[in-house]
């Protein structure tokens, strides 16, 4: 399935509505790729034309920056900005809160000024505008507990968009005790996912998964590929992978669209 890149649009002499910044996890990780397809599917359905950077996309630099390697971050930022400014990018949707945060908040200082949305925000808009319509039933009576990714929630105060998507389904949205600004990290951020954790008596993702499972959900919904990885591991740790699925809100909605 051919997904169009910016050069494709230029060759056609047209402009996409938005740049879909996919992100590393969403490009390469098999589980996260499914979310990427769900997001792309939703954009298609809503009639949003999007371009990707494809092989010109490179890590936004978040893990390097949060691990203290400001040099590497700024090198990444500058070359990404060069590519995007070269294409005249104005508006971006990301499939990852980390990409979202970096592009939105940290790229402007480096000369990259764009309107940046996380996919949950764009999908919420499309639902509100009636460009996406839900056909109820698929998740009827299912209990969905939502986990706030740190860089979407506390980092950028986006708490309602992903919840609104869940509310658009026929499901029961339930909350963990630690939610919204008091949400508890999945353990991946700050480059932790790329290293072993320091000595302690528990893994952070186990602590959080335990809390999520305490709500006896059918689904643990998130909106971050790293949270998916961490919480999926957590669910496996408790041998609950048959009963409880860890999913992105985009997947839930994509499965419920009116055909």
């Amino acid at each position: 399935m051919k997904v169009k890149t910016y050069p494709d649009f230029i060759a056609e002499g047209s402009n996409p509505d938005i740049l879909f910044w996919v992100g590393c996890a969403s490009s390469f990780d098999e589980r996260a790729q499914k979310v990427t397809r769900a997001v792309a599917f939703l954009l298609e359905k809503a009639g949003v034309t999007f371009a990707v950077l494809g092989t010109e996309e490179s890590c936004n630099g978040d893990p390097a920056k949060r691990a203290g390697n400001e040099f590497l971050y700024q090198l990444q930022a500058m070359s990404n900005i060069q590519v995007m400014n070269g294409y005249g990018v104005k508006k971006i949707v990301t499939a990852c809160p980390h990409c979202f945060n970096t592009l939105k908040n940290e790229y402007p200082d480096m000369g990259g000024k764009y309107e940046v949305l996380h996919h949950s925000m764009l999908i919420q808009q499309l639902l509100n505008e009636g460009k996406l319509k839900v056909e109820g039933g698929k998740f009827l009576g299912k209990k969905i507990v939502y986990h706030d990714p740190c860089y979407l929630g506390r980092g950028n105060n986006v708490y309602e968009a992903p919840r609104d998507i869940i509310k658009a389904l026929d499901a029961n949205l339930s909350e963990m005790q630690r939610n919204r600004e008091n949400g508890f990290c999945c353990g991946a951020g700050g480059a932790q996912i790329f290293k072993e954790s320091e000595k302690g008596d528990k893994e952070i993702n186990i602590e959080r998964t335990e809390e999520a499972l305490g709500a006896k959900p059918d689904y643990i919904a998130v909106s971050c590929p790293f949270c998916i990885l961490m919480l999926t591991d957590g669910v496996k740790h408790f041998s609950k992978e048959k009963e409880v699925k860890v999913v992105d809100v985009a997947e839930l909605l994509a499965a419920s669209l009116k055909q």
Partner: peptide, 8 residues
């Protein structure tokens, strides 16, 4: 391999 996700 950045676009592999779109192979499906």
């Amino acid at each position: 391999d950045r676009l592999k996700w779109a192979d499906e």
